[in-house]
Amino acid sequence: MIKFFRKIRQQLLSKNQVSKYLVYAFGEIILVVIGILIALGINNLNQQRINKNTEQIYLQGLEEEFQTSKLKLEELIQVNQGNIDGAKSILTYIADPNNSPGEKEFSELLYQSFSSDIAFNPNNSLLNEMINSGNLKILSNSELRRLLTNWISTLEDIKRQENELDIQREHVLNEFRTEGNSLQTVLKQVGVYQQLDIPIGQKEQSNLKLLSSSAFENNILMFILASYATGEAHYQPLMREMEQILSLIQKEID
Protein backbone atom coordinates (compact mmCIF):
# COMPACT_ATOMS: atom_id res chain seq x y z
CA MET A 1 0.00 0.00 0.00
CA ILE A 2 2.83 2.41 0.85
CA LYS A 3 4.55 1.58 -2.45
CA PHE A 4 1.28 2.36 -4.21
CA PHE A 5 1.12 5.82 -2.61
CA ARG A 6 4.79 6.44 -3.38
CA LYS A 7 4.27 5.60 -7.06
CA ILE A 8 1.31 7.95 -7.33
CA ARG A 9 3.25 10.69 -5.54
CA GLN A 10 6.14 10.40 -7.98
CA GLN A 11 3.72 10.60 -10.91
CA LEU A 12 2.13 13.74 -9.46
CA LEU A 13 5.52 15.37 -8.92
CA SER A 14 6.51 14.63 -12.47
CA LYS A 15 3.27 16.34 -13.66
CA ASN A 16 3.78 19.30 -11.24
CA GLN A 17 0.47 18.58 -9.50
CA VAL A 18 1.69 19.85 -6.10
CA SER A 19 -1.68 20.07 -4.35
CA LYS A 20 -2.59 16.50 -5.19
CA TYR A 21 0.92 15.44 -4.22
CA LEU A 22 0.45 16.95 -0.76
CA VAL A 23 -2.86 15.13 -0.35
CA TYR A 24 -1.31 11.80 -1.21
CA ALA A 25 1.74 12.52 0.96
CA PHE A 26 -0.55 13.32 3.87
CA GLY A 27 -2.49 10.13 3.20
CA GLU A 28 0.72 8.16 3.29
CA ILE A 29 1.61 9.67 6.66
CA ILE A 30 -1.85 8.87 8.04
CA LEU A 31 -1.49 5.30 6.82
CA VAL A 32 1.86 4.92 8.55
CA VAL A 33 0.48 6.40 11.78
CA ILE A 34 -2.53 4.09 11.66
CA GLY A 35 -0.21 1.14 11.12
CA ILE A 36 1.90 2.13 14.11
CA LEU A 37 -1.17 2.57 16.31
CA ILE A 38 -2.52 -0.82 15.27
CA ALA A 39 0.85 -2.43 16.03
CA LEU A 40 1.00 -0.73 19.43
CA GLY A 41 -2.56 -1.81 20.16
CA ILE A 42 -1.78 -5.42 19.30
CA ASN A 43 1.41 -5.26 21.39
CA ASN A 44 -0.52 -3.80 24.34
CA LEU A 45 -3.14 -6.52 24.08
CA ASN A 46 -0.43 -9.18 24.02
CA GLN A 47 1.29 -7.62 27.03
CA GLN A 48 -2.00 -7.41 28.90
CA ARG A 49 -2.62 -11.07 28.16
CA ILE A 50 0.87 -11.99 29.38
CA ASN A 51 0.43 -9.89 32.54
CA LYS A 52 -2.96 -11.49 33.18
CA ASN A 53 -1.52 -14.99 32.87
CA THR A 54 1.40 -14.05 35.10
CA GLU A 55 -0.98 -12.52 37.64
CA GLN A 56 -3.01 -15.73 37.77
CA ILE A 57 0.13 -17.80 38.36
CA TYR A 58 1.16 -15.47 41.18
CA LEU A 59 -2.32 -15.48 42.70
CA GLN A 60 -2.48 -19.27 42.75
CA GLY A 61 0.98 -19.45 44.32
CA LEU A 62 0.07 -16.84 46.94
CA GLU A 63 -3.13 -18.68 47.79
CA GLU A 64 -1.17 -21.88 48.40
CA GLU A 65 1.38 -20.04 50.55
CA PHE A 66 -1.21 -18.28 52.69
CA GLN A 67 -3.31 -21.41 53.12
CA THR A 68 -0.23 -23.21 54.46
CA SER A 69 0.64 -20.25 56.69
CA LYS A 70 -2.93 -20.17 58.00
CA LEU A 71 -2.70 -23.83 59.07
CA LYS A 72 0.59 -23.07 60.83
CA LEU A 73 -0.94 -20.13 62.68
CA GLU A 74 -4.01 -22.13 63.71
CA GLU A 75 -1.75 -24.79 65.22
CA LEU A 76 0.40 -22.16 66.94
CA ILE A 77 -2.67 -20.49 68.47
CA GLN A 78 -3.68 -23.85 69.94
CA VAL A 79 -0.17 -24.44 71.34
CA ASN A 80 -0.12 -20.95 72.87
CA GLN A 81 -3.53 -21.48 74.46
CA GLY A 82 -2.38 -24.84 75.82
CA ASN A 83 0.61 -23.12 77.40
CA ILE A 84 -1.69 -20.57 79.02
CA ASP A 85 -4.05 -23.26 80.32
CA GLY A 86 -1.17 -25.24 81.83
CA ALA A 87 0.33 -22.16 83.48
CA LYS A 88 -3.08 -21.23 84.91
CA SER A 89 -3.42 -24.71 86.38
CA ILE A 90 -0.10 -24.20 88.16
CA LEU A 91 -1.41 -20.92 89.56
CA THR A 92 -4.47 -22.70 91.01
CA TYR A 93 -2.16 -24.92 93.05
CA ILE A 94 -0.11 -21.90 94.15
CA ALA A 95 -3.32 -20.15 95.25
CA ASP A 96 -4.44 -23.16 97.30
CA PRO A 97 -1.53 -24.71 99.25
CA ASN A 98 -3.88 -27.36 100.64
CA ASN A 99 -4.54 -28.66 97.12
CA SER A 100 -1.03 -29.71 96.14
CA PRO A 101 -0.50 -31.81 92.98
CA GLY A 102 1.57 -34.93 92.82
CA GLU A 103 5.11 -34.79 91.46
CA LYS A 104 4.09 -36.39 88.17
CA GLU A 105 1.14 -34.03 87.61
CA PHE A 106 3.29 -31.00 88.43
CA SER A 107 5.99 -32.19 86.03
CA GLU A 108 3.42 -32.72 83.28
CA LEU A 109 2.05 -29.19 83.78
CA LEU A 110 5.54 -27.73 83.65
CA TYR A 111 6.42 -29.67 80.51
CA GLN A 112 3.09 -28.85 78.85
CA SER A 113 3.42 -25.14 79.51
CA PHE A 114 7.09 -24.39 78.93
CA SER A 115 8.62 -27.03 76.65
CA SER A 116 7.38 -25.48 73.39
CA ASP A 117 8.66 -22.17 72.11
CA ILE A 118 6.25 -20.00 70.14
CA ALA A 119 7.39 -18.84 66.71
CA PHE A 120 5.29 -18.21 63.59
CA ASN A 121 7.19 -19.13 60.41
CA PRO A 122 4.92 -18.36 57.45
CA ASN A 123 5.57 -19.47 53.87
CA ASN A 124 6.66 -16.22 52.22
CA SER A 125 9.09 -17.31 49.50
CA LEU A 126 6.86 -16.29 46.57
CA LEU A 127 5.72 -13.05 48.21
CA ASN A 128 9.32 -12.07 48.98
CA GLU A 129 10.31 -12.82 45.38
CA MET A 130 7.47 -10.63 44.09
CA ILE A 131 8.42 -7.76 46.38
CA ASN A 132 12.15 -7.96 45.66
CA SER A 133 11.61 -8.17 41.89
CA GLY A 134 8.98 -5.44 41.78
CA ASN A 135 6.40 -7.86 40.40
CA LEU A 136 3.89 -7.03 43.12
CA LYS A 137 2.61 -4.31 40.78
CA ILE A 138 1.33 -7.03 38.43
CA LEU A 139 -1.53 -7.63 40.87
CA SER A 140 -4.45 -5.51 39.68
CA ASN A 141 -6.26 -5.34 43.04
CA SER A 142 -4.84 -2.29 44.86
CA GLU A 143 -6.21 -3.37 48.26
CA LEU A 144 -4.52 -6.76 47.91
CA ARG A 145 -1.23 -5.06 46.99
CA ARG A 146 -1.50 -2.84 50.08
CA LEU A 147 -2.17 -5.77 52.42
CA LEU A 148 0.68 -7.80 50.99
CA THR A 149 3.05 -4.86 51.29
CA ASN A 150 2.09 -4.39 54.96
CA TRP A 151 2.31 -8.13 55.65
CA ILE A 152 6.10 -8.14 56.10
CA SER A 153 6.07 -5.28 58.62
CA THR A 154 3.23 -7.02 60.48
CA LEU A 155 5.36 -10.16 60.77
CA GLU A 156 8.23 -8.10 62.18
CA ASP A 157 5.89 -6.84 64.91
CA ILE A 158 4.80 -10.43 65.61
CA LYS A 159 8.44 -11.49 65.92
CA ARG A 160 9.12 -8.80 68.52
CA GLN A 161 6.20 -10.03 70.62
CA GLU A 162 7.36 -13.62 70.29
CA ASN A 163 10.82 -12.59 71.49
CA GLU A 164 9.24 -10.98 74.56
CA LEU A 165 7.28 -14.15 75.24
CA ASP A 166 10.43 -16.23 74.88
CA ILE A 167 12.16 -14.04 77.47
CA GLN A 168 9.34 -14.67 79.97
CA ARG A 169 9.47 -18.40 79.21
CA GLU A 170 13.22 -18.38 79.87
CA HIS A 171 12.65 -16.73 83.26
CA VAL A 172 10.53 -19.71 84.28
CA LEU A 173 13.01 -22.24 82.90
CA ASN A 174 15.84 -20.52 84.74
CA GLU A 175 14.32 -21.87 87.95
CA PHE A 176 15.66 -25.27 86.87
CA ARG A 177 19.20 -23.98 86.45
CA THR A 178 19.50 -23.47 90.19
CA GLU A 179 20.67 -25.96 92.78
CA GLY A 180 17.32 -26.22 94.53
CA ASN A 181 15.22 -27.54 91.61
CA SER A 182 15.52 -30.49 89.25
CA LEU A 183 14.91 -30.54 85.50
CA GLN A 184 15.82 -34.21 85.64
CA THR A 185 12.73 -34.89 87.74
CA VAL A 186 10.46 -33.20 85.21
CA LEU A 187 11.95 -35.05 82.24
CA LYS A 188 11.84 -38.40 84.05
CA GLN A 189 8.22 -37.93 85.11
CA VAL A 190 7.00 -37.10 81.58
CA GLY A 191 8.99 -39.91 79.95
CA VAL A 192 11.57 -37.87 78.03
CA TYR A 193 14.44 -39.72 79.69
CA GLN A 194 13.04 -43.03 78.48
CA GLN A 195 12.46 -41.71 74.93
CA LEU A 196 16.03 -40.42 74.66
CA ASP A 197 17.48 -43.45 76.47
CA ILE A 198 19.24 -41.22 79.02
CA PRO A 199 20.64 -43.02 82.07
CA ILE A 200 18.31 -42.48 85.04
CA GLY A 201 19.85 -41.80 88.43
CA GLN A 202 18.44 -43.25 91.63
CA LYS A 203 17.98 -39.91 93.39
CA GLU A 204 14.93 -37.83 92.47
CA GLN A 205 14.52 -34.28 93.79
CA SER A 206 11.04 -32.82 94.25
CA ASN A 207 10.07 -29.54 92.56
CA LEU A 208 6.88 -29.04 94.55
CA LYS A 209 8.52 -26.41 96.74
CA LEU A 210 8.35 -24.08 93.73
CA LEU A 211 4.63 -23.73 94.48
CA SER A 212 5.50 -21.71 97.55
CA SER A 213 8.01 -19.47 95.75
CA SER A 214 6.91 -15.88 95.10
CA ALA A 215 9.55 -15.49 92.39
CA PHE A 216 8.22 -18.57 90.59
CA GLU A 217 4.64 -17.27 90.87
CA ASN A 218 5.68 -13.89 89.47
CA ASN A 219 7.44 -15.53 86.54
CA ILE A 220 4.35 -17.63 85.82
CA LEU A 221 2.17 -14.53 85.89
CA MET A 222 4.48 -12.64 83.52
CA PHE A 223 4.51 -15.62 81.19
CA ILE A 224 0.70 -15.81 81.14
CA LEU A 225 0.42 -12.08 80.42
CA ALA A 226 2.93 -12.31 77.57
CA SER A 227 1.20 -15.42 76.16
CA TYR A 228 -2.22 -13.78 76.35
CA ALA A 229 -0.93 -10.65 74.59
CA THR A 230 0.67 -12.81 71.90
CA GLY A 231 -2.58 -14.62 71.22
CA GLU A 232 -5.18 -11.89 71.58
CA ALA A 233 -3.31 -8.77 70.46
CA HIS A 234 -1.15 -10.34 67.76
CA TYR A 235 -2.14 -13.81 66.53
CA GLN A 236 -5.89 -13.20 66.33
CA PRO A 237 -5.55 -9.92 64.36
CA LEU A 238 -2.97 -11.65 62.18
CA MET A 239 -5.42 -14.45 61.47
CA ARG A 240 -8.11 -11.94 60.46
CA GLU A 241 -5.67 -10.16 58.18
CA MET A 242 -4.65 -13.47 56.62
CA GLU A 243 -8.27 -14.41 56.00
CA GLN A 244 -8.86 -11.03 54.34
CA ILE A 245 -5.84 -11.54 52.07
CA LEU A 246 -7.01 -15.04 51.14
CA SER A 247 -10.50 -13.76 50.40
CA LEU A 248 -9.14 -11.09 48.02
CA ILE A 249 -6.81 -13.58 46.34
CA GLN A 250 -9.64 -16.07 45.76
CA LYS A 251 -11.86 -13.36 44.26
CA GLU A 252 -9.13 -12.46 41.77
CA ILE A 253 -8.45 -16.02 40.64
CA ASP A 254 -10.29 -16.88 37.40
Rank of each mutant, 00 (worst) to 15 (best):
K137D: 04
S214F: 04
L147E: 03
T54I: 13
N51W: 06
L148P: 00
F106W: 11
L45R: 06
T178K: 15
L155C: 05
D157W: 10
G86L: 09
H171E: 10
S153F: 01
S142Y: 05
G61T: 05
D117G: 04
F216N: 02
V192M: 07
L110P: 02
V32G: 03
E241P: 13
L238S: 09
K209R: 09
L110V: 04
D166R: 15
Y235C: 03
E204D: 10
N128L: 15
S14P: 10
S214W: 00
E74G: 12
K20H: 05
L31C: 10
S213H: 01
I36H: 00
L248Y: 01
T68F: 07
Q47L: 13
I38F: 10
N218L: 15
K20A: 08
S116A: 09
V32S: 00
S153P: 05
Q112F: 01
E108D: 07
E175R: 14
L211E: 02
G191H: 14
E63K: 14
A25Y: 10
G201H: 00
Q17K: 15
N141M: 02
G231D: 04
Q184N: 11
L155T: 03
I224C: 01
I84Q: 12
K137V: 14
S69R: 01
M222H: 03
N53P: 12
E55T: 07
L144D: 00
G82W: 08
I57D: 08
F66K: 06
E156C: 08
E241H: 05
Q11E: 15
G180H: 12
S89R: 12
L208R: 04
E241Q: 12
N135Q: 14
I118C: 00
A87I: 12
Q67G: 05
F26L: 15
T92W: 04
L246C: 03
S133F: 13
L221R: 04
E175W: 12
L71I: 02
L31P: 08
E156V: 11
G102T: 09
L238Q: 08
N132T: 13
K203L: 07
T185E: 11
G27W: 01
L59H: 06
N83G: 12
Y228I: 07
L148K: 04
S140Q: 10
N53L: 11
N124T: 07
E75C: 04
T178D: 08
Q112T: 08
F106L: 15
I198E: 05
F114T: 00
S100H: 08
E241Y: 03
S213Y: 00
G102D: 08
S19V: 15
Q195R: 12
I152M: 14
R146K: 15
D197W: 06
N128D: 09
F223T: 00
E217S: 09
G180K: 15
P101W: 11
Q81S: 00
G82K: 09
R49P: 01
S206R: 10
V186G: 02
N219I: 07
N128G: 05
E143F: 07
L40T: 04
Q47N: 15
E232F: 07
N98A: 05
K72D: 11
S14H: 11
L187I: 12
R240H: 09
F5D: 00
I220L: 15
L238C: 12
K70I: 09
V33R: 11
N43Q: 09
S115C: 01
Q10I: 13
D254Q: 13
I57P: 07
Y21N: 08
I94H: 02
E63D: 05
L22D: 02
N207Q: 13
E63M: 13
Q250W: 12
V33T: 02
N80K: 06
Q250H: 08
